[in-house]
Design a protein around this nucleic acid. Sequence first.
DNA 1: ATAGGGTTAG
Length: 663
Amino acid sequence: MKRKIPRPIPLVSSPATQNPRRHGHFYSTASNANLRTWFDKYFEKTNVHAWNSLIADLARSGDSLESLRAFSSMRKLNLIPNRSTFPCAIKACSALSDVRSGQQAHQQALVFGFEFDLFVSSALIDMYSKCGQLGDAKNLFDEIPQRNIVVWTSLINGYVQNEYPLRGLSLFKELLSRGDDDDESSVDSFAMVSVLTACSRLSAEGMTEGLHGFVVKCGFDRDVGVGNTLLDAYAKGGSVGMSRKVFDGMTDRDTVSWNSMITVYAQSGLAREAFEAFSAMVKGGLTRYNAVTLSTLLLASAHCGSLRAGKCVHDQVIVMGLLDNVVVGTSVIDMYCKCGQVQMARKSFDVMEVKNVRSWTAMIAGYGMHGLAREALDVFYQMLGVGVRPNYITFISVLAACSHAGLVDEGRHWFNVMNHQFQVEPRLEHYSCMVDLLGRAGHLHEAYDLIKRMKVRSDFILWGSLLAACRIHKNLELAEISAQRLFELDPSNSGYYVLLSHIYADAGRWKDVERMRELMKDSGLVKTPGFSLIELNGRVHVFLVGDKEHPRHEDIYRYLEELGVKLQRAGYVPDMTSVPHDIDEEEKEVNLRGHSEKLAVAFGIMNSVPGAMIQVMKNLRVCGDCHTVIKLISKIVNREIIVRDSKRFHHFKDGFCSCGDYW
DNA sequence: ATAGGGTTAG
């Protein structure tokens, strides 16, 4: 039977057609490529107005290069550009990040006497900021005797977009303190959006709240753009609830509003709410969805690991003809990787016509999380081969891939050359990968030395990797050092107490095990309960450790018991290293049997056709015993079983795991 | 005929 594909809502038009040219030139129906030809054929070459229209239309429709060409043709004819000519030409320069042309335009604007023209000045400030030349933007701003709000906003935006949101905010403060007597520079909704964007970059909730009050007082809360940015700023500051309140209170909502709300949910891991918001958007019928919407829904699908949902969105991507959109294509790759289907991801990757750093990186990261380090490195070499410059996330992905597969030499190599050969300074995340890689491979002291030598401040992820490695390689001394740091850095996480007490137990230090238990109790910490999810026929089933709530739990335990007999025949011996130490042996086995991933796998097998693949997702790491058991089950029942845990994927098949038992 | 804004992918 053919899968039912939801009926598409027409694709939202591209910016060019979304804002139809307000001025009906007779050539306005011609495509950009023909615009210049039409122009040359029908216009007097001396008509400055016509040249201005041509330059403006080309710049507006995104054909910046052609716009600049028109500008230079006009100059070659020795026509005198007027004050309308420059802003558009300069805008084309900023769209191309072409500082040299921008500087030339700047020079000519001075020659033709537009030094104090605010339209020209604001375009120039914007151009210099977009080209990363904040100093030039600031100098120009300082020399303007009579500034208006557009000029102020241009510079505020420059700061925000060059990652100086704090400077953007203080410039806004300066603007406010200038007094209200000047109408030309009083705050408008555009300025408000820029300032709120600064807030969202800072993730400063207090600031957002304060500005929210200002927004309401000035009546900007009726502006869609302001509402959208406010919503986003609250979310980035951690208040999903306030985001929703802003969204609910908006008088108008456009596609960006809905996309923003869906994104907030998707990024907070609230996939269900994301899909519900989307369904409300479609039901409302007033707003069309676009590439951004689908991209965000793919993120939500990836987050909850729902291949079913992801495929559905992918179908919609195809229907809407968005496959050649780089962002959407990259989201598709990410979705398939995180839903366990690397091969599908690779297929989507191969058909992408335009790939950028992020697309390449998504594929590398995807292979890495599936333990396919060789494939990850192959893609990385290909990427270098075609001349795409890796960024810092690419290197995180490469190092993580090496770490998942234990490729110590490759990892060391790329860590050592990333700075000198690729000008990517190692950050905390790179050090974390290296500590993980070295630690798990048994080079504990090299890992510890690396931490001591590094110039950036350490965090709990880094020490957590070292502590986990200390357990594998039974190093009590380093374990205590790491744990001490972890108790300070991440005091509310109970996992480190649990891990350290396991290490003590492995060493037979029972008094210390008891001490850990007391410590945990005193600080009011409880073990994070493990749970697993499995999706069957569009329904998600949740299993907790030792689940006795699930309606079918008795059947599941019975089935696991049946399997247990076959397991023992296959040579299985329970691995007790992950169970509490303060219970007797029999209880330990019961405890092990109730691990949520086992329950989910069993339930999956019981409720699917023979031979069907089983996919399970777990909130914590898979324990050693479950790993062994699921491996054997995959052989006994002849099923492919994919388990996604908090760090990576395990593909079990024919009694083997893709990780080669290295994790 | 001219200037400044908000949502997306690793």
